[in-house]
């Protein structure tokens, strides 16, 4: 693996992409796929940040407190996110577009606030159970968990994404993947075609949560510190931006979107200070002018035609104005 990675990093370093930057690009690519899955099945869910938090905390506790190896913690974090997705998805996925968006934002906030108060809640539960004052400290509220071992390595992420890419290509050629696409186009008709819409949506929601959980475990073992603030509404919007920038017509889109958006402030140094402004502009400009995102041939050719028309139209003498 190093034989490939070292030359790759030698190419990327001069443009500002060091190994840690590359690692975050790859983690965010996983998050891009997480939101892509739900969007591709017509569900506008902003829950990925919340599931990422669950994965990150469970994974970090498993390696730090129980000395599990990374791969086991990874499975643990993914499983935790997936299990929690079941009771969340069953009631919420009946909601559609804006309502689903609001509900999943609410879910993310509940997760954040629960993490903030987890130790206090646990302490008061234990106190009432045991009848005496109990002190409880595990995840440290707003201060977060510190000193997580840095176990994630670049090749883990690359391998994970390669496997994921293969699974996604197969998904689109399977019954299940076609059912997802049908539901996105017209949920009612999909049901009339014999597709169990509730089942498919819930499965997709779980898969999306599992991926977000994986991204959480990986990132916790890169950053060494995790705090609930890192998984709030801002993170949910960042993840959405990956999908919007890259486009969701193929699974490549959100991966490209995630990597470009993550690398941008590093490559274009002067952007650092204006990072927030830039992120806002990207969302706004892409959704208005390039609705299918970067990875969307049809969108580009439409834009190209429009620009072409504007150019050929303006110098034409027949307009007569200036």
């Amino acid at each position: 693996m190093d034989a490939v990675l070292t030359p790759l990093l030698d190419i990327l370093r001069p443009i500002g992409i060091t190994e840690p930057v590359l690692q975050f690009m790859l983690v965010n690519a996983i998050l891009g796929v997480s939101i892509y899955l739900t969007l591709h099945a017509g569900m506008f869910s902003l829950a990925s940040a919340g599931f990422m938090a669950i994965g990150a905390y469970v994974g970090a506790l498993l390696t730090q407190q129980s000395d599990w190896p990374l791969w086991a913690a990874l499975l643990g974090g993914m499983a935790a996110a997936g299990v929690i997705a079941v009771p969340i998805g069953l009631p919420t996925l009946r909601l559609r577009d804006i309502y689903l968006a609001i509900a999943t934002i609410g879910f993310g906030e509940v997760v954040r606030v629960l993490i903030l108060n987890f130790d206090d809640i646990a302490a008061s539960v234990l106190t009432t159970l045991q009848g005496e004052r109990v002190r409880f400290r595990l995840i440290e509220g707003a201060r977060g968990i510190k000193g997580i071992p840095t176990l994630t390595e670049t090749w883990h992420l690359i391998l994970f994404l390669i496997v994921l890419g293969y699974l996604l290509t197969r998904l689109h050629r399977s019954r299940f993947g076609r059912a997802m696409a049908a539901i996105r186009q017209d949920e009612t008709v999909a049901a009339n075609m014999g597709i169990n819409v509730v089942y498919v949506k819930n499965m997709v929601f779980i898969l999306s949560a599992v991926l977000a959980g994986a991204a959480g475990v990986f990132s916790a073992h890169l950053t060494r510190i995790i705090t609930p603030a890192a998984f709030g509404f801002d993170k949910a919007v960042d993840i959405l931006a990956f999908a919007v920038l890259g486009g969701t017509s193929t699974w490549i889109g959100p991966i490209v979107g995630a990597m470009v958006l993550t690398a941008m402030p590093e490559v274009l140094r002067f952007l650092k200070e204006f990072r927030g402004v830039f992120n806002g502009l990207v969302l706004l400009v892409v959704i208005v002018y390039l609705p299918g995102g970067l990875v969307n041939p049809a969108g580009w050719s439409r834009l190209w035609q429009r620009l072409g028309r504007a150019q050929t139209a303006s110098p034409s003498p027949s307009t007569g104005v200036d």
Partner: peptide
């Protein structure tokens, strides 16, 4: 023809 099929995602993989 969705309901006619039985192959799972794993079969496809």
């Amino acid at each position: 023809q969705h309901a006619r099929g039985h192959a799972s995602l794993l079969d496809a993989v």
